[in-house]
Design a protein around this nucleic acid. Structure first.
Ligand SMILES: NC(=O)c1ccc[n+]([C@@H]2O[C@H](COP(=O)([O-])OP(=O)(O)OC[C@H]3O[C@@H](n4cnc5c(N)ncnc54)[C@H](O)[C@@H]3O)[C@@H](O)[C@H]2O)c1
Ligand SMILES: NC(=O)c1ccc[n+]([C@@H]2O[C@H](COP(=O)([O-])OP(=O)(O)OC[C@H]3O[C@@H](n4cnc5c(N)ncnc54)[C@H](O)[C@@H]3O)[C@@H](O)[C@H]2O)c1
Lengths: 225, 225
DNA sequence: CAGTCTGTGTTAAAATATTAACAAGTTTGT
DNA sequence: ACAAACTTGTTAATATTTTAACACAGACTG
């Protein structure tokens, strides 16, 4: 089967036409988090050096990352925390409240829902769904678990685009298909399985087992030396 | 402060002296998972092409990854699933049962403990600890939550090296210090904060918020096009 | 207000990681 | 036994990502 030429890495471009890498995009929320902390502590100005201490990334990398999107700092001084935060919010899209749904109200789904309600000001849990009748109407911080049948209407009415799925691996693909069918275009998947979706639908995998197992590799490595 | 020359990326070397990248190491558990599935379905031989379908990585990359550690396949045929699994277990260090402790028996800590007991045959949860007296002696699938005071003894007696921490960000550093002091050398951190540890102690961060927020970036990106 | 100091932004170099190409084994069929 | 069909493992080429170097801009000093 002669595979057709693969389209180049679908990374997006910034204003200047240079590519923004995936790794860069994953650092942006870290910067944002640190800025939130600094602002809470009434810090007005921050240098890339200090940001480096707080984040663990090198100062060079931080400057380069930020410069990708514009000149947000003042030479000789540093970055204004509030101003930089504004800019990063715009860039990441977190300036407008994002509504998401959670599918699977098991242990992980409940933990994530609770956590995001309490601690993540940038997203709003619009609904949580489960196929198990026993879960229905149980509450997580005031949000009732709903039946899968009610999901399409909620997604449609609130034009929700983002979902987290915390269902068993065996049913994850079916849930993805259902979500996509109803207009979801970005999915954070916690099930340990490869999922397929049409082009244009973004699937990120949060594979906690991989994190643990690769850590173990490094932990043993050390002993040999 | 003239920073001393940074030691080169602490990536380890394989038998042939070529470097094994971090990204490669994170793909190994995926291969392992697929092999476990295949073996359960009595599949004896698998080609890189099919592995590619199952994992989402390209066949070229899979061959290259595996070839890093040796020649495990048979030309013209493919890889023997059981043999390859054995090899990967050895390489990742998952051939011997790994005992780990969990610190923080909150929602996430409980979910992870339960999950690993039920679904992760490669690790054994040796203990779970919490500072909140109300949590003490509550059970998770038969494992009792213990007081922090009991942690050092357990770690010592079972020579445990790996820990997962699911405590609030504010106390995470203190917990890391305590763990390291007692001999832990690899930590999987779920708290959204940068942690410090002496050289030789591996810290991996599983930052679920970053995953969600970077996904949102991509989900909005799409709309513009 | 010239001169110095500090820290950004930009450009260049180095290091990593992925993709592609193909030579070298294996099996299968005749 | 030989050719055709496959599939690995290795080497070379690309692409991406990180690191480094430094010119430049604002702030501060005397
Ligand atoms: N809990 C963890 O720490 C952890 C760690 C790593 C991976 N995961 C993965 O995350 C997922 C969820 O884990 P969990 O521990 O919460 O499991 P869980 O069994 O506690 O929860 C799964 C939930 O999904 C619901 N469900 C089942 N089929 C469904 C369907 N077709 N549609 C909608 N809902 C359905 C179930 O009713 C249940 O409430 C699993 O895929 C698991 O492998 C969990
Ligand atoms: N729950 C999630 O989905 C989620 C998502 C992203 C990040 N996190 C992070 O994971 C961590 C845990 O989250 P959670 O939702 O389970 O919180 P939680 O509040 O449910 O649990 C935290 C637990 O840590 C214990 N604790 C507090 N101080 C301690 C100490 N000094 N020593 C030992 N134990 C201590 C508490 O008693 C509690 O049981 C937090 O850092 C949170 O930011 C959680």
């Amino acid at each position: 089967m002669p595979q057709q030429k693969k389209p180049q890495n679908p990374s997006v471009k910034d204003k200047k036409g240079t590519k923004t890498s995936k790794s860069l995009i994953k650092r942006l929320p870290v910067y944002l988090r640190i800025l939130d902390n600094l602002i809470r502590r009434d810090v007005d100005i921050i240098s890339s050096r200090v940001l480096s201490d707080e984040t663990g990334f090198t100062a060079e990398q931080i400057r380069k990352d930020l410069a990708t999107f514009g000149a947000f700092g003042t030479r000789g001084t540093g970055y204004n925390t509030s101003y930089l935060r504004e800019k990063l919010l715009k860039i990441t899209g977190l300036d407008k409240q994002i509504r998401i749904v959670v599918v699977g109200s098991g242990h992980l789904g409940k933990a994530l829902t609770r956590y995001n309600i309490l601690k993540n000001p940038y997203v709003e849990i619009a609904g949580i769904f489960d196929a198990n009748p026993a879960e229905l109407n149980t509450e997580i911080l005031g949000i009732k678990v709903q039946a899968m049948e009610d999901m399409p209407r909620l997604i449609e009415e609130q034009s929700i685009k983002v979902a987290m799925i915390t269902v068993p691996a065996e049913v994850a693909q079916a849930v993805v298909d259902l979500l996509v069918e109803n207009g979801i275009s970005a999915i954070l998947n916690f099930a340990p399985t490869k999922l397929r979706a049409p082009a244009g639908v973004h699937i990120h995998n949060a594979d906690l087992t991989i994190e643990l197992q690769s850590l173990i590799y490094y932990s043993l490595e050390r002993e040999k030396e």
